[in-house]
Design a protein around this nucleic acid. Sequence first.
DNA 1: CGACGGATATTCGCATACACAGGATGGAAT
DNA 2: ATTCCATCCTGTGTATGCGAATATCCGTCG
Lengths: 231, 231
Amino acid sequence: MAGLFKVAAEAEDDGGLLSDRIRNALTDEIASGSLVAGSALEEQQLADRFGASRTPVREALRQLVVSGLVEVRGRRGLVVARMTPERIMDMFETSAEVEAMCVRLATYRMTPLERSDLIELHDSSLAMVDANDVDAYDAFNRLFHEGIYSATHNAFMAEQAQEVRARLSAFRRTQLRQGDRIRKSRDEHDSIMQAIAEGDGDTASRRMRAHMLNAAAALRRYIDDRAGGQG
Amino acid sequence: MAGLFKVAAEAEDDGGLLSDRIRNALTDEIASGSLVAGSALEEQQLADRFGASRTPVREALRQLVVSGLVEVRGRRGLVVARMTPERIMDMFETSAEVEAMCVRLATYRMTPLERSDLIELHDSSLAMVDANDVDAYDAFNRLFHEGIYSATHNAFMAEQAQEVRARLSAFRRTQLRQGDRIRKSRDEHDSIMQAIAEGDGDTASRRMRAHMLNAAAALRRYIDDRAGGQG
DNA sequence: CGACGGATATTCGCATACACAGGATGGAAT
DNA sequence: ATTCCATCCTGTGTATGCGAATATCCGTCG
């Protein structure tokens, strides 16, 4: 999953391994929702689409299975991981705890430069909220949280947090479109930033946890609205 | 990595996929230290060893790369992930935070049955300490922590915690052999159990973090003793 | 004697080919 | 008409072959 962290690696798409290229492409499509959960993933079909043979496609798929984005169904092929609402909630809760853990460490360890960068980044999000630009805010949100991961000064923890976050990215955008969630999200960021500025890691941690759980609650409302349960 | 959690799957070793069998075997060998960090992993050689062709070996290796146990070295083949002391410490710290996070939730959520099972398990470890049986204690330790993961009643979090833990298993045994670390470990478990019994999740969490960091410190002393740095 | 360059050999990355399993489909029997 | 069975067919799992890239080794030159 170290690869996910260096998304700058997309630049070397042509130079890298074919299987990696396919893996990254599929990761993006699953995370963005282009490939909906439960879709069958046929090797030959994907091979044709990417202009490759089945071998690199297979390797990409097996890697996605390990990272949890794809699941095997016996010998009947692979499907995009279909997650139950319960599992999604579990993942959000885990993400909340992980983020809380990261922001606590980050508060204690970030350098003045990192702190000022994060403040500047946070300030920039106000315009996106006013414009109600969900895509821009989603992109900002990612940078904000990645900035916190990085400020933990623990590369492994940052990777783990990033991995969990990546697995939820498909749902995060959905959740942001709920009502005025985007503005509330920004407000919550603001209160987290205050705690960080005061060097109060425990408070920042609690607020981050609440922030993430609010996002999860918003998603749950959305899921409950859409369907009683399509497990 | 869900596969790691159901280690009962070892029973279906013969029935399962060849690439899975190879992956599990290599995982065990890396975790146990049979394959030392930095060793080259040649596809043909492994294929011969497992009586298979290169294809399933390749798939197994690529999966191990994703899970972080193996790393790629350009086109010059793969090696068992060589971890720097810094990275190992990062992993231990992450593990400490993750365990702290789990025990906090577990304290609030475990059922009376889970609590009594955990107490019983903990009590059983005293004999192993008295006998200074590191292997037995190591096995108990695993059950103890897995019991806590399970008591979070969050399957995803349990899997994540398990995955982090698995990646450190190679070092954990080493650390337990340091001085009277095993007895101290047991004492720390005891204080954690007290907090759990009192339903004080925050205290349990702090004590768990300290417990894990103590283990990391013991390992660091060991590393520092052995070599100034063999990165 | 050391360094540099080319040839060889090893090993990876991908493609293709073959084997096998499970499901779908069609027909026949009840 | 429905159900059961046989056959085919689709798709996965594995093996092998070929091309490319790189390390190694040896010879030659400085």
